[in-house]
């Protein structure tokens, strides 16, 4: 039964991920990305990580993708061919990713992965487990990640800020 579900979710994820880049209409791409996010959440549920599944849907499908859709609709990319056939950019991103993937694959074949601290998720509350791990073992990476997000936020504000013309004080 588990294998059946995994096969279904993995298959749909792979298919929709390809469709995201294959569709010419960016709104269809966004929709297949939405389906992909849902199936990733489904994969988390089969692993008994319900909290992660819910957060996956709330953050990615509920917030980030809606913003994407927002931008796509405002730009009206349907008639704009500027963003299609970006082979050079694709190679620039895809090349390093492929090498990284191969290195990781070779590494995992050579040595078994270091045992991560295990929590009994079957019996316990997995929200509690994630919270405790995040604020003890992985506290530093967690804080660094939030700092990176803060920097990105400041960057967005700086880019979007307009000079306010000087007005006489009233």
């Amino acid at each position: 039964m588990d294998h059946l579900f995994f096969g279904y979710f993995a298959g749909v994820i792979a298919l929709t991920a390809v469709l995201v880049v294959a569709f010419r209409n960016p709104v269809y791409s966004a929709l297949s990305l939405l389906i992909m996010f849902f199936h990733v959440a489904g994969l988390y549920v089969t692993l008994h990580a319900e909290f992660l599944a819910a957060v996956q849907v709330i953050v990615y499908a509920g917030a980030i993708l809606v913003l994407y859709l927002f931008v796509v609709m405002l730009l009206n990319l349907k008639t704009d061919d500027r963003y299609h056939s970006q082979w050079r950019a694709a190679a620039f991103v895809g090349g390093p990713l492929l090498i990284e993937f191969l290195v990781l694959l070779a590494g995992s074949l050579a040595a078994p992965p270091a045992a991560a601290p295990r929590v009994d998720i079957e019996t316990g509350d997995n929200t509690l487990a994630i919270g405790e791990t995040l604020f003890s073992t992985y506290l530093f990476p967690f804080e660094v990640a939030s700092l990176i997000l803060l920097v990105a936020m400041i960057g967005a504000i700086v880019l979007a800020k307009r000079e306010v013309p000087e007005t006489p004080a009233s």
Binding site: L34, E50, F51, A53, A54, V55, V57, I58, A61, G62, A63, V66, L69, D125, N126, T127
Partner: peptide
């Protein structure tokens, strides 16, 4: 389910689509 509140929030956000 043990994440009931998050489940509702998740589907409420899908309604925007």
């Amino acid at each position: 389910i043990n994440i009931g509140v998050l489940y509702i929030l998740a589907f409420a956000s899908i309604g925007a689509y």
